[in-house]
Design a binder for these strands. Structure first.
Lengths: 366, 366
DNA sequence: CTGTTAGCGCGTTCAA
DNA sequence: TTGAACGCGCTAACAG
């Protein structure tokens, strides 16, 4: 429990100056290799460990990124954080992590704290409602580089999924499978849910089907119970939907429960598609068709961008990176092929092939 | 992008000294309310934000806890971290989070970095093998308070599940359900898997059944594929097991797949119990019986303990907190009652009741 | 009540 | 090639 070893201690013991010790430890060229060895030797012997707080005070760099997310137990954010961590740690950055619990006020407080802690940059999945002056009123004037993830706000760098496309390819897939009365269990009022809804509407319209408002029901993103209730509502609508595009896998799972408890068959009587490609989607009662968002990539690209900004890169316009989604068809929506893990190519329709080529588009667009 | 406002700036503008400004901002009693108001007003006006790096340098406190986990995308660790975060943030502590990827070398490196960053305490789920001198050789001599979670090592404060009990109640449950040839898909060589194995063996022996080595097969904790392969091996053993206690839910899920693909019925021909109470266990092809570990509590208690240590609490002996596990019976092991979510009390045997009373034991023992 | 002084541990001048 | 001096922004003595 003795006091931590400092440069000063080393200097005194070696009877040289602090700055020489420091130079030696930094392997600077203008130090004789003799003293270098002596210093290194002594440092190791006493288990010297540089105080990065002190260093940060003078360098004005902490090598720490602040990360604000609504809930790190959701597999989506956990994966994104993992992606962030991978890129950050490779560049010798560390993460100061905050859970905001979807509470904008708490987010604001945590943000202040992270700034006080002098983080070098921020990655934020904001709990603020769309239209909030988050960027203009808060983040921009901090002077600290930041990148938004998942939840989009205008006039800022953003990395996330292409939500409109997610909604579009999910819905289009259901159409291809022959479903016509396609309902949508939408998410709450955040940009992702709005984008997915728009994609859904576009696909429906393109197919020449009318968008019915009573086919659109809102559910919380992360609670299966919400999906279950929402689906119950949908099943009471007349005419009854023959498919549902759920804005998340948890919603889809709740919907599956409702449908099965109602005695209807999936995918025979009702088709279901979710979003997120949850690890256990394939092991459910009915293996769940879904749209993969490549969450790791979202985290990685956000971090690469942030690091560039920290290194001083100037960008004229906010960069918006949309990571390309990918349909993962499984049994829950597969009228046209057996409920195997992957469809055999020879049963896919022309529409299927079109979609396939779409999917080979660039990973991300800027 | 102007320079951040400092105490000095405020002092100059208000034509008073830095220490007065500081005292005013800290609301110390020996400052006239007049100057207090002036200072507060100016600070708000210029959006003054204290530099906590500088403060830490002098107070020798960072209000940051270092957290080292093998993989934050596993739902177990994600939940534990959430528990940590809740307690920490309530006490105004922040988390510096590191993923070690189950690599002991990386863990060592990250540990050094966290110490250099002057964290006030550490919570570690170590990737070191059991028997490694982790505590004696590394953590203890850092001088920084630390608490181990999940993976047990001797001579250190520890908070985790009661793994022996987990193995015991899972296996005993299978015995109660009438299964007799109970196999075990054990986890890798870490303390949790060893404890669960021991609990399994104890229950088997108590039932007067011989422990068969060929009924014990190892699988990675977090890969369903491992559970699947392991189960295939078990199904080739003669006589074929009629039940399996899997050391984790992912292993159990893989096992379920193997069993179902083999054309056997669960729970009729083979019973399955996992560990972890994964969120989606109830939605699987066969709703999965499991043992709940109360992961949030593990994180919370570890953090409370760590904060006490940081506040200077002295403990003679290492404290070992074992959070009490709870059986969550579902269809996959339920020969004796209908595959409903919860068993009706009148069908439970005398053995059941015994177990129930066990479960109401204290939440945690020290 | 307020100001002065002296560090915290390190990096960065500039002299020697 | 090395050392002395200063400052990063803040806190904590002590003096006035």
């Amino acid at each position: 429990m003795s006091k931590p070893v400092t440069l000063k201690h080393l200097a005194k013991l070696l009877k040289i100056s602090v700055s020489t010790v420091n130079a030696a430890l930094h392997d600077r060229s203008d130090i004789s290799s003799a003293t270098k060895r002596r210093v290194l030797q002594k440092a190791r012997e006493l288990n010297y460990r540089p105080n990065l707080v002190a260093r940060s005070l003078v360098t004005r760099r902490t090598q720490v990124l602040g990360v604000l997310v609504p809930d790190l137990t959701r597999s989506f954010f956990a994966e994104v954080i993992k992606g962030i961590e991978q890129v950050a740690s490779a560049a010798n950055y560390y993460l100061l992590l905050c859970n905001t619990g979807e509470d904008p006020k708490r987010e604001d407080v945590e943000l202040e704290a992270l700034l006080s802690k002098q983080v070098d940059g921020l990655i934020v999945a904001s709990a603020h409602p769309p239209g909030s002056p988050l960027v203009r009123k808060r983040l921009s004037q901090t002077g600290v580089p930041f990148v938004l993830v998942d939840r989009f706000f205008p006039n800022a760098h953003f990395v996330g999924g292409d939500d409109a496309k997610i909604g579009y390819i999910a819905t289009r897939h259901l159409l291809q499978q022959g479903y016509r009365r396609i309902a949508h269990l939408r998410g709450p009022k955040v940009s992702t849910a709005i984008g997915r809804l728009q994609g859904y509407q576009k696909a429906i319209r393109e197919a020449g089907v009318r968008v019915r408002d009573d086919y659109i029901v809102e559910a919380p993103y992360h609670e299966e119970s919400g999906g279950l209730e929402g689906m119950r509502k949908l099943l009471r609508v007349s005419p009854q939907p023959d498919a549902v595009f759920a804005a998340s896998d948890p919603i889809a799972i709740g919907a599956l429960e409702a449908i099965i408890k109602m005695g209807l068959r999936v995918p025979g009587e009702i088709g279901v598609v979710g979003v997120g490609n949850h690890r256990y989607g394939q092991y459910l009662r009915v293996p769940l068709s879904t749209v993969d968002q490549d969450r790791l990539t979202i985290g990685m690209r956000a971090t690469s961008l942030l690091l560039e900004l920290i290194e001083g890169k100037q960008l004229q316009k906010p960069r918006v990176v949309l990571v390309n989604p990918k349909l993962v068809p499984r049994s829950s929506s597969s009228r046209s092929f057996a409920p195997a893990e992957s469809p055999s190519p020879d049963v896919s329709s022309r529409l299927d092939k079109e979609t396939a080529s779409r999917q080979t588009a660039t990973l991300a667009q800027s």
